[in-house]
């Protein structure tokens, strides 16, 4: 073989080494990508499962408290009210006090029943989101803490028990934030039912807050709302600035099914 050909062959062989190296790097990198994606998927699934479990435990606890209030405390209070009504021998001033006390006990029983209903999953599932929100709004308005107003646009349709429960809990979280931090005088809740989209909007005229720069600075309450929304395939947007109040919008595609929705919640009916 001529030396020139030999040299060219050796050069080619020499160049094959880095070519193989490049192929190896490329294949390894592809595998790494797949591995990272799998890891990310597992992480997301784990976080979703964790959140789902947390919510289920929370729901169960709330359900137990609700039952305890309904079956025990309100019963005791009813008994107290009856006992007070059975007192016959008393002067006018004492009778007045007894009547006032009976009214107060009756009001407390009523408040506790409402509270029990707002905590109970069964109650929300039974009445549906719209009715539950109406009752809740009436309760808030009667309390005098804030002037609450519910607006419903479109023809309401059922979103599924789980979704309605999660939306109701988001509403409760937002309401809690408004009452605790905003100092708002008015709260407007809008339920928008359209063919392909459902919107729950909560607007207040409170102090507002600066928009968070990044995800890590979002408060735990707000983050919680977003996580809950993500669990049912919805998105929660929070917009606010100092002095202009706060607006929370939860958007949901009612026809997009999420794994969580299909699951039957464990021990809900106990």
């Amino acid at each position: 073989m001529a030396i020139e050909v030999r040299i060219i062959l050796i050069t080619l062989i020499f160049l094959i080494a880095p070519a193989f190296l490049l192929i190896y790097v490329y294949i390894y990198n592809k595998r790494k990508k797949r591995h990272i994606e799998e890891k990310e998927h597992l992480k997301t699934t784990f976080q979703k499962e964790l959140l789902k479990t947390q919510i289920e435990v929370q729901e169960q606890t709330l359900n137990n408290i609700s039952r305890e209030i309904h079956d025990n405390i309100t019963q005791v209070l009813s008994f107290v009210k009856l006992n007070l009504g059975m007192i016959e021998e008393a002067d006018a001033a004492t009778k007045n006090k007894i009547t006032e006390s009976r009214e107060l006990v009756a009001q407390t029983i009523n408040d506790l029943r409402n509270l029990s209903k707002s905590m109970s999953f069964e109650h929300i599932a039974q009445l549906g989101l719209v009715k539950t929100l109406e009752i809740e709004m009436a309760r808030i308005s009667n309390s005098g803490l804030i002037n609450a107003n519910l607006v419903i646009t479109g023809e309401p349709y059922a979103l599924g028990e789980e979704r309605e429960l999660v939306l109701f809990r988001i509403f409760q979280e937002a309401l809690n934030n408004t009452l605790k931090h905003s100092g708002a005088k008015h709260l407007k809740i809008t339920l928008q039912y359209s063919e392909l989209l459902f919107n729950l909007t909560l607007e207040d005229d409170g102090a507002g807050f600066s928009a968070p720069d990044n995800e890590s600075t979002v408060g735990s309450g707000l983050k919680n709302m977003q996580s809950r929304a993500a669990l049912i395939g919805a998105s929660a947007e929070i917009s606010s600035s100092p002095g202009t109040g706060c607006c929370i919008t939860v958007t949901l595609n009612p026809f997009k099914q999420q794994a969580y929705i299909d699951d039957t919640p464990s021990d809900r009916s106990r």
Binding site: T11, F14, L15, A19
Partner: peptide, 12 residues
């Protein structure tokens, strides 16, 4: 790739 080949060229 260039410097790998360059070494061979230098050698030969």
């Amino acid at each position: 790739l260039f410097y790998y080949g360059n070494i061979v060229c230098n050698v030969f």
